[in-house]
Design a protein around this nucleic acid. Structure first.
Lengths: 152, 152
DNA sequence: GGGAATGTTCAGTTTTGATTGAACGCAGAT
DNA sequence: ATCTGCGTTCAATCAAAACTGAACATTCCC
């Protein structure tokens, strides 16, 4: 009844690939993250290529992307020319922080549009409502972030 | 110094198109929503096509998509065969509600993977942490939703 | 100096998704 | 009956993105 670990692992990696694809990551980047989260230990560049069954070019590109986002970290070991990657300590926090920044940014942009309108214009009220909406979401996520930080 | 309303309107619509594209909507769907939010009144099917400068086929497809998501509503008037669309009363709430549902779903899926693992497996702890992460986000957004509901 | 291992780059290919526009079905109006 | 306006559908087109694989530069080892 209990599936072998390797099966759960493979399923999880595939699931993460799809789940994160919906959030703007490429499929490979999503699976990479899934694999690194599951294993919880640094994996080498070529390991990733063979385990995910993709070209080294793809690993290179996607790793660079994930590194830039602060989602993963690169390790280098003396006497070993390979690059190793693992999920950043604060990987999830990092993602939330960025999310908050982007929502706040949107809120302010919308408010900017609103304030370019005369106050008797009905659209102004609607855009302000939208700005509030984004601000509220940013607030909610901020609370989630604090709650997670507390738990640790 | 104050730009004409029509200019602000056009800029807002374009901005929304881009902002919502990042959230998985097609460009046309995003601009449609932007237009409807700005105008705040029902707009006819063909109005949308001409104002956005896109084919009727695109309006049909994207309207169907937005309707399915509960983001907009279709109106029909006696003696007028045209379809009219406007942002749903609870359009934003609807979007948040769906967002919460999807995050909760992800949280539970991940927890499902975690529970398929033996408790001594380190991955189990990590996946539980990820599940908590999604649950916390869902909680945060839920609070945002309540805060917005209160304000009204 | 070869040679092997490693990561990057980039041009080319494949895939995916959005968009169009013509054909269609339907419902009122003439 | 025919015509016109309306929305849908679908095959074709177009564009953007992901992915590959070969060429390359670098480093280490013998």
């Amino acid at each position: 009844m209990t599936p072998p670990i390797s099966r759960t692992r493979a399923d999880f990696i595939a699931y993460m690939g799809q789940a994160l694809e919906a959030k703007g990551l490429s499929p490979i980047a999503g699976r990479m993250l899934g694999l690194l989260i599951f294993d919880g230990a640094p994996r080498s560049f070529s390991d990733l290529a063979t385990e995910l069954g993709v070209s080294r070019g793809s690993i290179s590109a996607n790793a660079r992307h994930l590194l830039a986002r602060g989602a993963i970290v690169k390790q280098n070991r003396p006497g070993d020319r390979q690059d190793y990657f693992c999920v950043a300590e604060q990987s999830l926090d990092q993602i939330l922080t960025e999310l908050i920044a982007r929502m706040t940014e949107t809120s302010e942009a919308v408010r900017g549009f609103a304030e370019a309108l005369p106050s008797d214009e009905g659209a102004r009220r609607r855009l302000c409502g939208l700005a509030d909406f984004y601000a509220a979401m940013a607030g909610g996520v901020t609370q989630a972030l604090q709650r997670l930080g507390m738990r640790r």
